[in-house]
Amino acid sequence: MMKNSKALAPFGMILLLLAGWELTVRTKQVEAWLLPAPSAVYEAWTASVDRTLEHLGATVWIALSGLGFGLVSGLLLATLFHLSPLLRAMFQPLVVLSQNVPMIALAPLLIMWLGFGTMPKILVVAIACFFPIAVSTMDGFRQTDHTLLIYMEMAGATRWQRFSKLEWPSALPAFFSGLKLAATYSVMGAVIAEWLGAKEGLGVMMQLASASFRTDRVFLAMFFIAGVSLLLYAAICLIERLVVRWRPQVKGGAPR
């Protein structure tokens, strides 16, 4: 009973918010171009299902492939940096620097260099995604249990055995924290990249809609962005739970 009510709580809360929103807009007679009611947003959806789905598909594709590239490069970087302190000393400043360049400045440059195709947008997303994955995975490697490290060395483990059998599995929870951050960045990154120059995608849809005061379509795009982010996040949580099964399940409301 308790468990069910806890699982339903977020949905109940969202429904409550939507109902309050609808009611306020109707009773206060707010202009639709200022703040459309949820029902108006739903109408905008039914009026343009096909077109919206195309935009959605384009954005999801960019976000997912960017996240994929970011995942591979982030993991590779974390592993290389961990295994070679020299490489880390050489390249770490550059990696941090890559995050200091604002995406707003970087995206037009990449589009200038690589054209209006999907590649520059995927790159923008990958640049935003690899960093949290690399940083948290490296932290995970470093936080490997000292007693276990000593055991492995006393047992005569090779450097590779130490990495693959000890450091990598113990970094998994940290890796997943980074991946969750990256997943939320990925959708945002895709939308911003599209905003700065694309033919389709939720970013383009928002830009066009706000230019013509179609606030209902702006909100529609926002709902989809939030929905995709949530779904991605949930999918990663699910994968994490399947992969990191050894952790003791904490009962009650304590944080995991």
């Binding site: 007693t147 276990l148 000593i150 055991y151 006393m154 047992a155």
Partner: peptide, 18 residues
């Protein structure tokens, strides 16, 4: 040289994921 003996420490040293 490593790997010539078996070792067991005081602290629990089992891998939690195995």
């Amino acid at each position: 040289e490593r790997g010539h003996l078996a070792y067991m420490p005081q602290q629990p040293s089992l891998m939690p994921w195995r």
